[in-house]
């Protein structure tokens, strides 16, 4: 297939009643609307990386002796806590 990527996109030349598009990135991150937050028990974590494998937003961060989370992008889904074989992750309420 011939790809016809345009070298420029002239937003001003496009009527605003055609295709609904947005060209400005929304500054909100998942961490802005999370209701539960994962907390790691560093004594229990064995760095098996199961949480790292399962995290849908790839917010798991490796530390020297344990795995932790980038809370700006963590959406609080709790999959890591559910999957952790060591039961080392607990979900606690934000603002609690």
């Amino acid at each position: 297939m011939k790809i016809q990527s345009r070298s420029f996109f002239d937003r001003a030349g496009v009527p605003d009643d055609l295709c609904p598009i947005a060209t400005q990135a929304n500054p909100m991150l998942p961490g802005d609307w999370r209701s539960l937050r994962p907390v790691v028990d560093r004594d229990k974590c064995v760095k098996c990386a199961v949480c790292w494998l399962y995290c849908p937003v790839q917010c798991v961060v490796e530390k020297p002796a344990w795995f932790d989370f980038d809370l700006a992008t963590c959406k609080g889904c709790g999959i890591c806590a559910e999957e952790c074989p060591q039961r080392a992750i607990r979900m606690i309420e934000e603002g609690g």
């Binding site: 345009r6 996109f9 055609l18 295709c19 598009i21 947005a22």
Partner: peptide, 18 residues
């Protein structure tokens, strides 16, 4: 695709919420 394009150089959200 002059009005809406999948273009890595100029990313945009297609079919935004209204």
């Amino acid at each position: 695709n002059w009005h809406a394009a999948l273009d890595p150089l100029h990313p945009m959200a297609i079919d935004r919420l209204t």
